[in-house]
Design a binder for these strands. Sequence first.
RNA 1: GCCCUCGUAGCUCAGCGGACAGAGCACCGGACUUCUAAUCCGACGGUCGCAGGUUCGAAUCCUGCCGGGGGCACCA
Length: 554
Amino acid sequence: MTPAELSRALTDALTAAAAAGELTVDPADVPAEVRVERPKNRDHGDWATSVALQLAKKAGRPPREVATVLAQRLAQVPGIAAVDIAGPGFLNVTLDAAAAGGLARDVVEAGAAYGRGTAIAGERIDLEFVSANPTGPIHLGGTRWAAVGDSLARVLEAAGAEVTREYYFNDHGAQIDRFARSLLARAHDEPAPEDGYGGDYVSEIAGQVIAKVPGLLEEPREVQQETFRREGVELMFAEIRESLAEFGVHFDVYFHEDSLHASGAVDRALARLRELGNVYEADGATWLRTSAFGDDKDRVVVKSDGQAAYISGDLAYYLDKRERGFDRAIIMLGADHHGYVARMMAMCAAFGDVPGKNLEILIGQMVRLLKDGVPVRMSKRFGNVVTMEDLVEMVGVDAARYSLVRSSADTSIDIDVDLLVRRSNDNPVFYVQYAHARTVNVGVNAAAAGVRREDAFDPSLLVAETESLLLAALAEFPAVVARAAELREPHRVARYLEELAGKYHKFYDACRITPRSDEDVTDVHRTRLWVNDATRQVLANGLQLLGVSAPERM
RNA sequence: GCCCUCGUAGCUCAGCGGACAGAGCACCGGACUUCUAAUCCGACGGUCGCAGGUUCGAAUCCUGCCGGGGGCACCA
């Protein structure tokens, strides 16, 4: 019996009790899905729920009475061994060993599909993340969004959504000009412009442009700058894509800001907003009335010199996403951009859309890299910022991705490089990966000893404490994935895997799967092999959601 | 000044309306002649920043204060 099945049994018990007149509850007050949770305390049964507490007021009865009514009905459900009422009115449910253990087979049979759900089936989501400007390599913050964003995409897909991963390529405007001037200056051995970019990579890119365009330095200065701009951005962008590919993050769409201006999309978006009465002219500029939708002040969309302001690209980009058929556009931004949220939401509302529904903005906090207990600030190539490349070089892709995705995006984190390269329990990536490798190895040994799954599966034999704890953890996986998708918090998957790995290690420690040399193979071994393989499947499925490899040997 | 965000064990972080607040690390003590000890078992460790409020119940929600970080352009 899975938690989902138990939840259904509870809902049925509620409606049945109401129908029989044992409870006077408005059908509207019966939750569609009763939350079933794993109690922290083992003495509180396998699963617990607080529905009785929640419904007591609506039913006009003390919580414990409501609980009693439910408990009587629930106790008759096959697979449920006991239902206890505890404290103020909690229902604590204990399952038969056989009913709990049946899950092992379900998981093995579901395979890679175990954990996937249909909560947001059919929803089309555009997820934009990283979107670092092509004026330099991806820094540590962008690396965090790459890890979290890609994992979130996977989690949303597991919940049934159709997700497009998108990268907004900011190749229009003043900072690209600054980049071009920096390349030009470096090519002529001049000092970098005051507002320009530093770091060795500027020389590298400049050198590559010169190599690619022979005779460039003999051209007029303006021609040179234009060439450096065009080629430099292209090279920088290629480098970013390469870093992302190495990091295991693939985007479906790389969207160029420039194309929005070139295609007239910006003008169309403005015309649309003007029709809706949300655009006006003042002081020689064109303004968007964002203050009417919760922003502090109105925003300039076309400057008085006729140049489009940065936000105009965002307007057109958002409209474009909606016109491409996405129900929902999600954008991940660093905390240093949170000031844009209000105006972006206002912009969304100005189009007549619903902020928070059609447009969602996730703000993530900063990352610091620590080495020998002090923040790392310098990068070899990039000067004063640490890059994705640096991190991967130091700790490898798996450790980098895992450590970035295991914390909630809204806490700032410190990453200890020394810890990440350690191959021990200190390091959560290895802890989880090791558990997976162990399940594989156990499977190999079991096969060699003649323990075969297909010979028997008798879940009533799974009576050890470590077995039932492990089974309960396996049962929770689908709910964890669903919750991670709903809350846009992929870190929940990582935390769950650490817990599961721990339960598995304890199970391994206490329960042999292959018999000792002087023992015969029994149904206990065979049934435990199902549990082992179910664990391997869930660890693999979970690591896949994080974009971290599940090694077979370590 | 205004806005956002965070403040949980010595450290890094979970938990975010439910039952005595958790994990890993660090420190201390145990467990390998048979499935990987990259593991397991035990001990130690916290006025959940502070003060009010809402609730049957608050680390979790609301208000104020204190402290860290970030943001407040006709920059991108």
